[in-house]
């Protein structure tokens, strides 16, 4: 019997599977082509409902374990019914979810055991943009700040490096920091 030294850290991330997928998709670039989507339906006022169920990847149609329903609305201060977070808040949710998933994965890959990871995310937005008050003001966030509090078996530099690498490999961080072509049509 041989003794294999295993990586003691367990953040619940299946790193071997991720590394296996990376290897497989290097050999078969087509398998790496994914398409994510959602359907959205207006409910009433500024309230609408998005449903996430199907996506495409690894060469075939895929389905989530269950259907996810996400409502967005605007708060009462905008004279809305506040049936859900605002869409910009959903973007912050996406960024947070993506970066934290990255923190867990990168830490696991580097053998760093996490005990707790907490993030606060804030986006500053000037409504003079979306309300058409000032054409020099953009509609979206002028800036976003993310602050992590991480308790882990690692030095401060190692934790900072994990957070930096998480940003480098984050889809939503890239979506927010770089321009993306968006085509909207009417059936």
């Amino acid at each position: 019997m041989s003794i294999i030294e295993t990586n003691a850290a367990d953040n619940g991330v299946h790193v071997e599977a991720l590394l296996g997928a990376r290897e497989a998709m290097t050999a078969h670039p087509a398998a790496a082509q994914f398409r994510f989507g959602t359907t959205n339906e207006w409910v009433n006022g500024t309230h609408s409902r998005s449903t996430v169920k199907d996506f495409f990847g690894v060469g075939e149609a895929q389905t989530h374990r269950q259907t996810y329903v996400l409502d967005t609305d605007h708060p009462e201060v905008f004279a809305s019914a506040d049936n859900g977070p605002t869409p910009p808040e959903m973007v912050l949710v996406g960024l947070a979810g993506c970066l934290t998933a990255g923190v867990a994965s990168v830490a696991q890959n580097r053998g760093i055991q996490l005990r707790s990871v907490k993030a606060s995310i804030e986006g500053d937005i000037d409504l003079a943009g979306i309300l058409g008050i000032d054409s020099d003001v953009r509609n979206g966030f002028g800036s976003i700040t993310v602050n992590y509090e991480i308790d882990a078996d690692a030095s401060r530099e190692e934790i900072e490096a994990v957070v930096a690498q998480s940003q480098k490999r984050s889809a939503v961080f890239d979506i927010i920091t770089n321009p993306t072509t968006v085509n909207v049509s009417v059936a």
């Binding site: 900072e160 490096a161 930096a164 480098k168 961080f173 890239d174 920091t177 770089n178 321009p179």
Partner: peptide, 12 residues
């Protein structure tokens, strides 16, 4: 247009 990832490039 320039990427908003500048701070992370420097930090890295």
């Amino acid at each position: 247009q320039f990427s908003g990832s500048f701070a992370n490039q420097c930090a890295s």
